[in-house]
Design a protein around this nucleic acid. Structure first.
Length: 826
RNA sequence: GCGAGAGUGGCGGAAUUGGCAGACGCGCUGGACUUAGGAUCCAGUGGAGCGAUCCGUGGGGGUUCGAGUCCCUUCUCUCGCACCA
């Protein structure tokens, strides 16, 4: 009896061999076609979880497969190492974030190694390393020089628990994306990346990504960018001579605009009421509204409220005195933060007008109906003919849009414009554990970027973290106090750090060329490896990380660092790991620890189960019994290989005995199936199922094997099976390969090609239907003629029984698949 | 409300181009292994029926010789966006 399958010892053995021989090390090789496979790098939280295991296993299968197909495969791994948990740990237990982070990285690296992933660890990067973030500081300065970075005082989402500002993309249902605390608005001086300058390109390029990205990710990005065409209009404020700017998609309704609504955050909400009797009321209203969280406040069902500012503006076409209201439903973030209100043709404005007794003027009459401002019960938002609109009366509203806009342009009161929902990316964080923003504030010169030769601006290490909301770096006087790069006078350093999404916006480029101290990366190396051929990660990054990375890559192109705009050619968003109907989480108590699974079943069984349980893009149900099953399969594979190894002879086939033809066919059909499933479809579950079928067949075949010729076919089959299994379960595959007496590592073995002759079976099973119902199946030679199949089908007793007493009206024959006799009575 | 996706055995899932629905795995049932079995092997396993056979892919309708797959309609669920001016 050969040794039993003991994954623990086998896996350690091969991991050591792979590591010592630097099997996974990769370099630029112009003679080979490259393939860059990237999985989203983890945050070093302490331990890997099943989501990581699934993500990285999928990636590892593809990486190993592509390598075997002859590609020069870049498959790197690193750490998204800045971030809040490190600080929270520091606040809770006093460990320095750096120590905490590096210890976690070390531990998780060992865990990843125990999974047998084929990473080139020589390319490992940690974003908290100054060798990494200094380049980001340089990019920041260069962006500053080009006006792609600016500072502005605005209202921002504030998370009280994380004590930091959040970008719009980082707010989910009004709550912090990380900790779930409700966010509210706070006014801050913030640094922004001008992502809006790239809105159109980000949108346009979506077209080119269609082939390789999931449609829903592109739709989400398109909606997030939110392009709409309309007009920018200016309304003169009575008495001040200033204008209120408004974006509208409905300039055709302008003659019906009877009041104005502005957002509570709008600067005019402060200045307009001054000196009017409404001053106090407006202040109370604004204060109250801003304290409410934005999600609740701007949800559709929320009570629409407003307050009159005491001021009016003039409708540029009718001269109508439009009272200006501050209204809680107006979004400061969208358009200009002010809306012209047309109560007759906008339901929201209608309700607001009714509530506050404001004028309603109908300007669009639907066909065959007569709207009356006094009696209408809802706004009419459809198409129709313009009325009360001076020279535009009688026109279709849709056709008048352009004319009205042009008319306004002639009056100097507006023009056609394109508006985006996308806002600039606020990157300031009042946190310690992040990359310092390389800027100083000088009383004389203002805000001045640090000189490039002074980079990196190192994060000071001796700080106390208290979680009070002030940036902890601000306490470090030796850091804060500096001299101005311009005038050399005393100045203070910026104490905000960058959003960690900045780090993850270019790490994939650094991987191509990771070990340079004197430059961010080598152009040639990057040109060779980029773009990423296949990116794999969670759907939760559909907008945030993926949009930022696309933007940042465009910026790097414009700064002259790279020659491409889109970093990720193909994207696979893998589903979540579910257990007992819910996402694994500590609070639900349904977490399965990968390390425990490795200890108990081995990495190979763990890998195999995550791949078998569901197609990669779908959510996957974790099942404790399921992994038992994959472990059983590997044990079965082990015994099969060992039994067949002990047969006489080698896998060199001289002739295929007739008795072994089915085995030979199954082997080549499996090669074809697995190749297609992995290569074209990323359907690892069906690829594994096919290999399981082969194992089942081989088990049967081995019971009756006789002589060396038959044994050779079995050995041949097992060896091919091992080659195909190696991307999925690399340890047992290498071990059995060695046990079969073969040399080398399967990672470096070419992927087998299937033999067309064997992959195509010599015969076909044809289903015989009478009147569309299955009555028999018959074996016929491959591609047999209809005459022959018909003849054979008609010999079948059951078929004949159903043809009795009826006449055949028509015969449908699909070669190798089906023959259908259409019958008529008599 | 808008957009996207999904609904198939007891469960996870197959069915790639309109052609034998339920591959593969889990679970379950029975048997073998002169003891035990959370091991292994063999057999069975969509439902009804002794059977021939009939029924069956959320519901209803349609196209077709033939529909899980295409069309219409409807229900349910998941995800994303959501007063976007």
């Amino acid at each position: 009896m050969p040794g039993d399958y003991t994954p623990q010892s086998i896996e350690t053995k091969w991991q050591k061999i792979w590591e010592e021989s630097k099997l996974f090390k990769v370099e630029v090789d112009e003679t080979k076609e490259k393939y860059y496979l990237l999985e989203m790098f983890p945050y070093p939280s302490g331990r890997i979880h099943m989501g990581h295991v699934r993500n990285y296993t999928i990636g590892d299968v593809v990486a190993r497969y592509k390598k075997m197909k002859g590609f020069n495969v870049l498959h790197p791994m690193g750490w998204d190492a800045f971030g809040m948990p490190a600080e929270n740990a520091a606040i809770a237990s006093g460990v320095h974030p750096k120590k905490w982070t590096y210890e976690n990285m070390a531990y998780m690296k060992e865990q990843l190694k125990r999974m047998g992933f084929s990473y080139d660890w020589d390319r490992e990067i940690a974003t908290c390393d100054p060798d990494y973030y200094q380049w980001e500081q340089r990019f920041f300065i260069e962006m500053f020089e080009r006006g792609l970075v600016y500072r502005d005082r605005t209202f921002l989402n504030w998370c009280d628990s994380c004590k930091t500002v959040l970008a719009n993309e980082q707010v989910e249902d009004g709550a912090c994306w990380r900790c779930g605390t409700q966010v509210y608005l706070r006014e801050y001086d913030q640094w922004f990346f001008r992502i809006t300058r790239y809105a159109q390109e980000l949108l346009d390029n979506i077209e080119a990504l269609k082939e390789g990205w999931p449609e829903r990710v592109l739709i989400m990005q398109r909606n997030w960018i939110g392009r709409s065409t309309g007009s920018l209009l200016r309304f003169q404020i009575e008495g001040t001579g200033d204008d209120i700017e408004v974006f509208t998609t409905r300039p055709d309704t302008l003659y019906g605009a009877t009041f104005m609504s502005i957002a509570p955050e709008h600067p005019l909400a402060k200045t307009l009421p001054r000196g009017t009797s409404q001053e106090g009321a407006v202040k109370t209203f604004v204060d109250k509204t801003l304290k409410e969280d934005k999600f609740t406040r701007t949800s559709e069902s929320y009570e629409k409220e407003g307050v009159f500012t005491g001021r009016y503006c003039l409708n540029p076409l009718t001269g109508f005195r439009m009272p200006i209201y501050v209204a809680n439903f107006v979004l400061y973030d969208y358009g200009t933060g002010a809306v012209m209100a047309v109560p007759s043709h906008d339901q929201r404005d209608f309700e607001f007008a009714k509530k506050y007794g404001l004028t309603i003027i109908v300007v669009i009459q639907p066909e065959g109906e007569q709207l009356d401002a006094d009696t209408m019960e809802a706004a009419y938002e459809g198409e129709g003919i313009l009325v009360n609109s001076q020279q535009f009366n009688g026109m279709k509203n849709t056709e008048a849009m352009q004319g009205i806009t042009e008319h306004l342009k002639a009056l100097g009161r507006g023009e056609a414009t394109i508006n985006f929902r996308l806002r600039d990316w606020g990157i300031s964080r009042q946190r310690y554990w992040g990359a310092p923003i390389p800027v100083v504030h000088c009383e004389k010169c203002g805000t001045v970027p640090v000189k490039k030769e002074d980079l990196p601006i190192l994060l000071p290490e001796g700080v106390t973290l208290t979680g009070t909301g002030e940036s902890p770096i601000a306490q470090v006087e030796s850091f804060v106090n500096t001299t101005c790069p311009k005038c050399s006078g005393p100045a203070k350093r910026e104490t905000d750090t960058m959003d960690t999404f900045v780090e993850s916006s270019w790490y994939f480029i650094r991987y191509c060329s990771p070990n340079h101290r004197d430059k961010a990366f080598d152009r040639k190396e990057v040109a060779y490896w980029m773009p990423v051929d296949q990116y794999i990660g969670g759907i939760e990054h559909a907008i945030l990380h993926l949009m930022y990375s696309r933007f940042y890559t465009m910026v790097l192109r414009d700064l002259g660092y790279v020659d491409f705009a889109e970093p990720f050619q193909r994207l696979l968003t893998q589903g979540m790991v579910i257990k007992d109907g819910a996402k694994m989480s500590k609070s639900k108590g349904n977490v399965v620890d990968p390390e425990e699974m490795i200890n108990r079943y081995g990495a190979d069984a763990t890998r195999l189960f995550t791949l078998l349980a569901a197609p990669p893009e779908k959510d996957m149900d974790w099942s404790d019994q399921g992994i038992d099953g994959t472990y059983r399969f590997l044990t079965r594979l082990w015994r099969l290989a060992m039994d067949i190894r002990d047969l006489p002879g080698t896998s060199a086939i001289s002739t295929v005995p007739a008795s072994m033809e089915p085995v030979m066919r199954k082997t080549h059909q499996t090669i074809r199936k697995v190749t297609e499933d992995v290569d074209k479809r990323f359907r690892f579950n069906t690829a594994i199922a096919a290999m399981m079928e082969l194992v089942n067949d081989l088990y049967k075949a081995k019971e009756t094997v006789q002589g060396q010729d038959e044994a050779a076919v079995l050995k041949y089959a097992v060896e091919h099976l091992l080659i195909m299994l190696s991307p999925f379960v690399p340890h047992i595959a290498d071990e059995l390969w060695e046990a079969m007496g073969r040399q080398g590592r399967l990672f470096e073995h070419p992927w087998p090609a299937y033999d067309e002759q064997w992959a195509v079976s010599a015969s076909a099973t044809v289903a015989v239907q009478v009147a569309g119902k299955l009555r028999a199946t018959i074996e016929v030679p491959k591609d047999a003629s209809q005459t022959l199949v018909e003849e054979k089908a008609l010999q079948d007793a059951n078929v004949r029984r159903f043809l009795e007493g009826v006449s055949i009206r028509k015969v449908i024959y699909v070669p190798n698949k089906i023959i259908n006799f259409i019958v008529a009575p008599g």
